[in-house]
Design a protein around this nucleic acid. Structure first.
Lengths: 227, 227
DNA sequence: CGAGGGATTGACCGTAGTCAATGTGGGTGG
DNA sequence: CCACCCACATTGACTACGGTCAATCCCTCG
């Protein structure tokens, strides 16, 4: 299911912070890279959380399933994002590669060891957990109280903020993934996107339904009520 | 809006952990108690987060509002629960007393100071944030993918687990609060409770619709699909 | 005893879900 | 190289779950 790419000692940006400008040696730990084919599972819910992951290339979805197959995607992880960070012993989500993906991985144990002596690393762990919490809290509001159009608008705005090419979105995920992230069906997502297109708010690039140009962000934002 | 009750030096259980069995002096910090009348706001979203709170008596709801008044309650805080703990500088929820409530409060600044030198306190902060995150993640699944009956069943089970008197629930919150927690309307909550009553799963104690006896937890649990 | 908040229940409505048909592009194998 | 297949997306028709609106009941409190 995965291929081992390389083993190296390298930085794992985001946890250890920026390299020390005062000349201290940057922290280096044993880092592996692994590649996963589109659709491959990176780890499963309830599995022991021995590693922390960072997306090097590709994209990842984290989700929970109900016993009858209903799925809720809790987050998408794009290049640079760290995921699979658990404080308890087991993963609370299943993580899958949305497209062919390479991740860097780091033994949780070594991270904990560093955190014990380095208050800065410990604070970074807390701040990453907090930002996950903030995202989940905002997403509860979306899932509990927003209409389908508002959800899709909020999704596009979120993706726009996270994308490097401003105004142009190259979505790695299919409509079903978006739907399971927004608590909708894929048909409803499709209809909302068509509606936003008809309203002149977005265009599709060529015939690729996953490449989107945001033509009117202000109008788009007006469908994403802020709290 | 609130009345000052007392000022004292006392423990704030849950952050500093159990008192040290090895005879070390228990950590003591300046602690105030405040009381809030039913419905009173304890702090508002976007306000600076200068304090951390613990429910001494009563119950609290934390919520976000959309600009048109739609409300999503993110959590209920019962006796002993800590809330209002932010890592950033401002609150991400509004907190209100559901019934007459007394809270203990602690200056965030002093907590941070203790956390800097005491790794145990720092770890407790992380573990509390993590348990908030876990709750939010589970709630996303509920809000995104569960039916109204499943949501109400899950709510009752959650309250049952948190209540001391097993099998008997004395809910402090009204139907609207429950609805805004579950992403439903109060009518839908009421209908679901009536349905569960008709199914022989619960009874109301006397004429008080907020006191509930769980008669058949297994059947109740069967409506709350686990993931 | 009256007012008012909270809960239940019924009738109806509307948003999003379901089911199904059709379109389209990319990848594969003959 | 091209034909076929399959995954993905769109769109339409219909359904249904939960929302809306309204009437009624009941308890608490002043």
């Amino acid at each position: 299911m995965f291929a081992r790419i390389s083993t190296s000692f390298a930085e794992f940006p985001g946890i250890f912070g920026e390299s020390d400008p005062k000349g201290g040696a940057p922290i280096r730990v044993n880092l592996n890279e692994f590649s996963y084919k589109k659709g491959a599972e990176i780890f499963g819910e309830k599995e022991p959380a021995d590693y922390v992951y960072q997306v090097a290339t590709g994209a990842v979805r984290s989700y929970k399933l109900l016993s009858d197959g209903r799925r809720q995607i809790g987050a998408f992880h794009l290049v640079g994002d760290i995921f699979g960070l658990e404080i308890g012993t087991e993963h609370r989500f299943t993580a899958e590669a949305i497209i062919d993906t390479t991740v860097r991985l780091l033994k949780r144990r070594s991270l904990e060891l560093v955190a014990e002596s380095d208050a800065k690393v410990a604070r970074n762990l807390l701040s990453m957990t907090t930002s996950n919490l903030r995202h989940a809290e905002d997403h509860m509001l979306l899932l509990g109280r927003k209409t389908s159009l508002e959800r899709v608008a909020a999704f596009l705005i979120e993706m726009d903020h996270r994308s490097t090419a401003a105004g142009i979105l190259a979505l790695p995920m299919c409509r079903r993934d978006i739907a399971d992230y927004l608590g909708l069906t894929l048909e409803t997502v499709s209809r909302a996107l068509s509606r936003l297109h008809d309203l002149g708010i977005l265009n599709f690039i060529g015939n690729n339904q996953r490449q989107i140009v945001l033509r009117d962000r202000d109008k788009l934002a007006s469908y994403d009520l802020q709290h």
